[in-house]
Amino acid sequence: MAAARSLSNPSSTTSLISQSRNQSKPTSPPSFLKPHSLQSPWLGFKISFQPSKTRPYLPNHRTITATISLSLPTSKTDRVASAGKVPKWSRRAIKSFAMAELEARKLKYPTTGTESLLMGILNEGTNLAAKFLRANGITLSKVRDETVKLLGKGDMFFFSPEHPPLTEDAQRALDWAVDEKLKSGGDGEITTTHLLLGIWSEVESPGHKIMAALGFNDAKSKELTSSSEPESVDG
Rank of each mutant, 00 (worst) to 15 (best):
S221E: 11
G84L: 13
P165L: 02
V233R: 12
S31A: 13
A177V: 00
V86F: 09
T193D: 09
E229N: 06
G113Y: 00
G154H: 04
W89L: 05
G215C: 03
L133G: 03
D179L: 03
M119Y: 02
T111W: 02
I210T: 01
A66L: 13
Y57M: 05
T111G: 03
P206D: 08
W200D: 07
A219F: 04
D218N: 12
K106T: 03
V148G: 06
L214F: 06
L38V: 13
D179Y: 05
F32V: 08
P56D: 13
T114P: 00
F97M: 07
G137E: 07
L166A: 02
S6E: 13
L58E: 13
S6A: 13
F97A: 05
P51L: 09
A2S: 14
V203R: 10
A219P: 00
I190P: 00
I68K: 06
Q50R: 11
P161N: 01
A177T: 01
S232L: 14
L58C: 11
R55D: 14
Q23P: 02
A81M: 11
E103M: 08
P30W: 02
K220P: 04
S226H: 05
S116I: 00
S12I: 07
G125R: 05
L38K: 12
P230D: 07
V86L: 10
T54L: 13
V80D: 09
S228Y: 04
Q39N: 15
N60I: 15
E115A: 04
P26K: 06
S31K: 15
T191G: 07
D218K: 07
K46M: 05
P29S: 12
I138R: 07
V148W: 02
H61L: 06
S48Q: 09
G235H: 15
E124M: 04
S15G: 15
A66M: 11
V203Q: 15
E202K: 08
